[in-house]
Design a protein around this nucleic acid. Structure first.
Lengths: 210, 210, 210, 210
DNA sequence: AATGAATGAGTGTTCATTCAT
DNA sequence: AATGAATGAACACTCATTCAT
């Protein structure tokens, strides 16, 4: 029984891992249930057994991906006394974090193509505290208290600036790179991009309020 | 003859218009050739006659969308003597422009899911000068000459910051909005977002170089 | 399980039997997958399940047809002490054999129209020993030893003469029959044709070498 | 007018020449009207204009091919006083003739797959005297009169033996060659095959009647 | 806990043919 | 004598899903 359960868990997680790859690569419509099954040691039938169908599998993938990314975000820590150093460090670590999770970013892009209809069905995802946001709140608070940060900016504003930059540079690298003839993924470009993001956030936050 | 040619043009462009909608809505794999045809006055057969197939149609949609957007960008003009006013205006007009072209942004996201494999096949798209970039170059030049802009930032850097922000706020509105419980598309939010972008760009560019 | 497997075998062989008929009748391009499926108790989908597609089904038909014909050839036996009697008997039995397998002859003609591209993909068909050829070798050997057969003729030569005659009289009966206003398939003609083949082979083999 | 007619004739014959190639290569069902048209300087529409459709074009191809082959056969002449020499020469020249007209042989095979349904619709093809047959009659007559040929064989019998051999060695070369691992089209094999046919016919005809 | 066989609705594509001029 | 545009039926093939055990 315990062994059966262990096998079951292995089957389930193998399916999930492969499905994550395939959905991230091909999108929801582009992914093939047969293809996913063929890449595992189980059969297609198990997808229905464990996840109810393609949509259930996709939802499970999405949920697991978000949980994993939150987990990883929790590792981001900046212990700088200086809020300016801290915010730059947070921006840059967030940048690194995105670079390392292209599959997740692709899944999010795919989910947005579907106007978020699946993420809305996942219970308890929203309540999953966003570690980065808590950190942001705290840094901003300190900066404002120290008089070095402008006061008309809140954590969501900053998070959106950082996220958009980090996501775009991964998600839109193909069209942007082609049109402007640059390779956004090259090490040199990445280093430049990373530093520039710190400049943007620091420059913005330390400027006087409008 | 002239009439036949006129009808041909109408058939072609009707197909293109409908396909743009459908591909933007459903993605490449999700779009159905039957569905596209059913929404026009012609038949599915004509897609093959004029575009060679689903892929050819998608490429034509992508190309036309880019050409259209470039055309629209050309209308963006900021005649402010002051480079700071000018750059803020450019950022905000770019913001407005993106808000008004969600279908295009979706197509670009879809194309990036496909890692840009189709855009690369379209000849002459890259040479289509990017009007916004020319304008940017000029404003940055003036700002640097006037000593109000930092000197370690070029047009591509600024374009990427502006683009990422504008694109993200449209493309990722569903997941971001859901997770943080905000409606990025509401008029008030949009006004706030728009102003914040100006602040970001101006604060960044007017800060001293690193 | 056993039953499922039995059903699978039935489905597969029913498909194969019907496909043999249809391909022999209509040729590869002329055969319709829908048509084949409609004549069975299963659906078109099963053709793809078991054979991968139209081409795979055609290959399976070709292979099974060749195996079947080899099986049938094995039944041909001539136990005549006299090599002259034996060779005549072999020629005439081969003739009968062809008359009874028009579908096979048509499949072979079709495959030759395709320049043998499919038969070349079937593994292990060539090694399937040709029973008739072994018999031929033996009869020729005996005849030569007895001094009644010429020595400048080998089994392949004789096989080609016999085969060409037998095949032609079935495969080309329609154009030949029309042009010369004879019915090659009538019982009287067949009897005449059969005897003539014996005469040809015996006359040829018993004549002195060139 | 004269010029228009000349153009018309050129269009028609170009279509016919290309169609002959395509039908011989692909069979009736396998041939594509679009493909035929694309290989000419005219358009698909002209096939309907001149031939009424695919079937009409195929019939025209078949008719023209038969007429051409009869024309070519007329060039076959054997002026040997000795009927044995004459019959061997006729067999061997017929062999050469077939080797040089593979496309025609393929068309005939295709037509037989269709059970001769199209050739039957062509008027006046049957009355087209078969030059080879006339010659055969005459040689056989002389041979019988001279007492060197058996008397129980008529021209059709001989014609069938010669035709079947000549046709088979071209038409079935792919499957026969593959199965027995010989190249029937190689120069050495062809020379052997050619001489063997002479041996067969001469051996048969000069043997005593059954 | 697992599975091989089966399925129906649909999916992109191609066909020979005709219309309108 | 010629043609570019258009067509509908058919075509080979694929999809996510369920059945029966």
């Amino acid at each position: 029984m315990a062994e059966a359960r262990r096998d079951a868990e292995r089957t389930r997680s193998e399916l999930l891992a492969v499905a994550t790859e395939v959905f991230a690569e091909e999108g929801f419509s582009g992914a093939r249930v047969d293809d996913i099954a063929a890449r595992t040691r189980t059969t297609k039938r198990m997808i229905y057994y464990y996840f109810g169908g393609k949509e259930g599998l996709y939802r499970a993938v999405l949920e697991e991906a978000y949980r994993g990314i939150r987990e990883a975000e929790r590792a981001i820590d900046v212990d700088h006394a200086d809020p300016v150093d801290a915010i730059r460090a947070l921006a840059e670590l967030t940048f690194d974090h995105h670079v390392g999770h292209e599959a997740f970013i692709r899944l999010v892009a795919i989910e947005n193509i579907h106007r978020g209809e699946f993420i809305r069905q996942i219970e308890g995802l929203r309540t999953l505290s966003q570690p980065a946001k808590g950190l942001l709140d705290e840094i901003l608070e300190r900066g404002r208290a120290a008089g070095v940060f402008r006061s008309d900016v809140d954590a969501i504003d900053v998070h959106l600036v950082i996220s958009s930059y980090c996501v775009f540079q991964v998600a839109n690298q193909y069209t942007f790179g082609h049109l402007f003839d640059v390779d956004l993924a090259s090490p040199e470009r990445r280093a430049h991009l990373r530093a520039a993001l710190g400049d943007v956030v620091v420059g913005w936050l330390t400027a006087p309020a409008r």
